[in-house]
Structure formats: C-alpha cells, structure tokens
C-alpha cells in the first residue's frame, strides 16, 4: 500500500497513470452533465412556487459544492506537500486553484441571476452568498500569493500555509456570517425551508453534482499533467517523451 502511494507520488508514474485515467473522467463528466443538464433543464417538473427559474439550481448547487470541496482538497494537498514534501501534491493544488475560484464565481453569478426572479434583486446580503464571496476572496489570495514569490518553492509553501489557515477559518467564517445574518435580517427570503424535492427534481441534481465532480477530477488530472511537464521539463524522461512526440 505505502509502496504504491510512494510510487504514485513520483511525477513520472502519475503522468503515465493519469494519461490512462483522464479520458474516463472526461467521458463520465460529459455524459453525466449532458444527461443531468437535459433532464434538469427540459424534463424535470417546474417548481410550484418559482416556476422554471428554479432550474438554475442544476448549475448553482453543483458549482457551490465544488467551490467548497476544492478548497478542502487544496488544503489536504498543501498538508501532504508540507509534511511529506511530495511535490506532486503541490502541482495538483496549483492546478486546482483556478478551477475552484472559477466555480466560486459561477456559484455567485448563478446565485445573483437566480436572485432576480426570486428576491427581485441581483444581490442580497444572504448568509450563504456572503460566505461564498469571502471564499472567493480566499481563492484569489492563495492564487495571488503563489504568484508573488520569485522562487517557485517558496511560493508553493506559502500558498500551502495560507490554504491550511484558510481551511481552518472557513467554518468559523461560515458560522459567524450565519449568525450575523440572523441578527440583521429576518429570514424571509430563505429557500432552505422549502418542502423536500420530489424525486424527479433531485435525481437530475444528483447526476449534475456527480458530473461536476467528474469534471473537476478530469480538469485536475489534465492540468496536473501540464504542470508536471512544465516543472520537470529539464528531466530526462520528459525530454524523451517530448522527443518521441515531436
């Protein structure tokens, strides 16, 4: 088991393995998002209160899930990188960060678009929107810090520390924002207390969530492969590989 993990930590082995895995995840993502998207947007029944506008949920919720999970995965990768000095973990964290920031932005944007028909406004200082916005700033901070260092290694370690500090703070921020919101505003706009969704509504949602996760894994594998080539470009095996191809 440990031997396998150690081997996996080697960029060369991971490069070969991910080459075989990534097409599967790309296919799964395309099929799941395609199915869930068509089902959710065209065939699922409309909500009795919100009508068709509720269908934004099929983009909004998966994006919000990913936005939060990616930060946690980045923090785990940062921990692995700091404790065991496995460079591959940092390459993966580098590859994930822009996707995480992008997903946070998609969640915010779809939330704002959704707000127009349900709340009558583009932006509401809703607790979840607010903590999502703060998460977006945390992503920007990690990406900016990594880029600010002259040496790549220092930037990687600094970004790892910041990600771990951030992940400890995310629950604290989440709960304090929740409390702040309940203190300030009556929860009239809440959409959490809706009756439970019927099966034909949440099944496409589940498919979309799975599809988004496959998409995340596929993008991470592909981007990590690029990162490996970029960082290991002076290594012999990369030169051999490029020589073969070109």
């Amino acid at each position: 088991m440990w031997a396998f993990i150690h081997k996996l930590g080697s960029p060369k082995v991971f490069y070969a393995l991910s080459a075989r895995l990534s097409p599967w995840f790309w296919t799964a993502a395309a099929v799941l998002i395609g199915t869930g998207g068509v089902w959710g947007l065209a065939f699922a029944p409309a909500d009795y209160q919100q009508g068709d506008s509720f269908r934004i949920i099929y983009v909004h919720v998966p994006a919000a899930f990913l936005a939060q999970s990616i930060f946690v995965v980045m923090a785990l990768a940062g921990l692995v990188f700091m404790v065991w000095k496995i460079k591959l973990a940092d390459m993966a964290a580098t590859a994930m960060a822009p996707l995480g920031a992008g997903m946070t932005f998609v969640a915010l944007l779809s939330g704002a678009v959704w707000g127009v028909p349900t709340w009558g406004t583009w932006w509401q200082w809703d607790a979840r929107l607010t903590s999502m916005l703060i998460l977006f700033f945390l992503y920007i901070g990690v990406i900016a810090l990594r880029g600010a260092f002259g040496s790549r290694d220092a930037g990687s370690r600094a970004a790892s520390v910041l990600t771990m500090v951030g992940v400890i703070n995310i629950p604290i921020i989440k709960y304090s924002v929740d409390w702040w919101y309940t203190l300030h505003q009556p929860a009239t706009f809440s959409i959490t207390s809706r009756p439970a969704m019927p099966t034909e509504m949440w099944l496409p949602l589940l498919i979309m969530v799975l599809g988004f996760y496959s998409f995340f894994i596929a993008v991470t594998l592909t981007r990590t492969r690029n990162e490996i080539l970029r960082r290991e470009s002076s290594k012999r095996w990369v030169r051999d590989l490029v020589g073969e191809a070109g």
Binding site: G141, L145, A148, V161, G166, I173, S176, V177
Partner: peptide, 27 residues
C-alpha cells in the same frame, strides 16, 4: 510573515488577511 519576502507586499497582505478578519468584525 507570508508577505515579508515579497516586494510591495502591502496590497497582497490586505488581500490575504481581510477575509480572515470577517468573524472578528462581525462579533
């Protein structure tokens, strides 16, 4: 401490730290 080695780290410092200040501000 993270930005001490970065030249002109002031703006970056605010970007890193301000999100973490939110709970303190709320309470």
């Amino acid at each position: 401490a993270l930005t001490v080695g970065v030249s002109r780290g002031g703006v970056l410092l605010s970007l890193l730290v301000l999100p973490l200040y939110v709970p303190v501000l709320i309470f």
